[in-house]
Write a protein that binds this DNA or RNA. Structure first.
Length: 291
DNA sequence: CTTACGGCCTGGGTGC
DNA sequence: TGCACCCAGGCCGTAA
């Protein structure tokens, strides 16, 4: 599931492999996940790839302006849950569910594969980018401790929900939210406003440590994720909470539990990450309501 | 405005 | 062998 570390890994790989290449042809399969397929077919052939960057979980493939005009385009890519993007030689077997082929001037083709098609492709003018992704929150690896605190200050929502909210911080998903909370020893259902400064500091630190470690291991591969070299990541071997229901906590030996928080499966250690005191209206797993 | 929740998209995996 | 069902992440609409 591509989250910040996976998208960062893909962005770095693409930067190395396809920056400077020219797209010579576009071939599309299913297009229901593409904003304006005709725009891709019209504008991309002949365009040279300038840079590849990450913005939250989005990949931004910026194109050099074509013939004189200064209309700069950017190919905006979201990998969703199962999106894969890798340059391949044309004789490399085409994976099932490959829906976009971008032939490059070095003979390879950049292929977009997405089993679920929860991903998105869109070719947007540079000027329209701000409206599409400008509303995203701070990058968790760049945000200062002070801004991190102010973004959570006074928020009554559960910390897990806020970590998943891309308008608060951009780039975290279910895996890294759970891993960060485990490391910070905070229960996912804690209310952000009730976190003590020391706990916020722990969480801030944990998020940075977890994301940086995950980038070093080139992301987590659970089912589908591969990088721009077609290789899986290895951070799943370091998971301490995510997907470990019923297994022992690496810190204390207690059994890791799973509950639904903020509508998502949340894995945590009930001993290291003590539940918040029950209060009126706090929703518990199974939908029971306490008054 | 903030928060919570349900539904939708799709198809692989699972269990009967 | 077949089939119903669950689940995943992001997003949107709705309601309080």
């Amino acid at each position: 599931m591509p989250e910040l570390p996976e998208v960062e890994t893909v962005a770095r790989g693409l930067r190395e492999q396809i920056a400077g290449r020219r797209i010579v042809a576009v071939r599309l399969g299913k297009t229901d996940f593409i904003d304006d397929p005709a725009a891709l077919e019209r504008e991309l052939p002949g365009a040279r790839i300038a840079t590849v960057t990450r913005h939250g979980k989005f990949l931004l493939v910026r194109l050099e302006p074509r013939h004189g005009d200064d209309s700069r385009f950017c190919l905006l890519i979201h990998l969703g849950m199962t999106g894969q993007l890798a340059p391949r030689h044309p004789d490399f077997p085409v994976a099932a569910h490959t829906h976009a082929f971008f032939a490059l001037d070095d003979g390879r083709e950049l292929r977009y594969t997405d089993v679920r098609r929860f991903g998105r492709l869109a070719l947007v003018p540079e000027a329209a980018l701000e409206e599409l992704i400008g509303g995203l929150g701070a990058d968790p690896l760049e945000v200062t401790r002070a801004e991190f605190g102010s973004r959570l200050a006074g928020r009554r929502a559960m910390i897990k929900a806020l970590l998943l909210d891309q308008r608060v911080l951009r780039g975290m998903g279910n895996i890294y939210a759970d891993e960060s909370l485990w490391r910070a020893r905070l229960h996912p259902a804690r209310h952000a406003a009730r976190l003590k400064p020391q706990e916020l500091a722990r969480l801030y630190r944990a998020i940075r440590d977890v994301l940086n470690a995950a980038i070093r291991l080139r992301g987590s591969s659970i089912a589908n994720y591969i990088d721009a070299e077609g290789q899986p990541g290895r951070y799943q071997l370091r998971h301490r909470a995510y997907g470990r229901e019923g297994k022992r906590c690496f810190r204390c030996g207690q059994t890791i539990r799973r509950m639904i928080v903020a509508g998502r499966s949340s894995y945590f250690c009930p001993r290291c990450q003590p539940a918040p005191r029950r209060r009126r209206g706090v929703k518990l797993a199974g939908g029971a309501r306490f008054r």
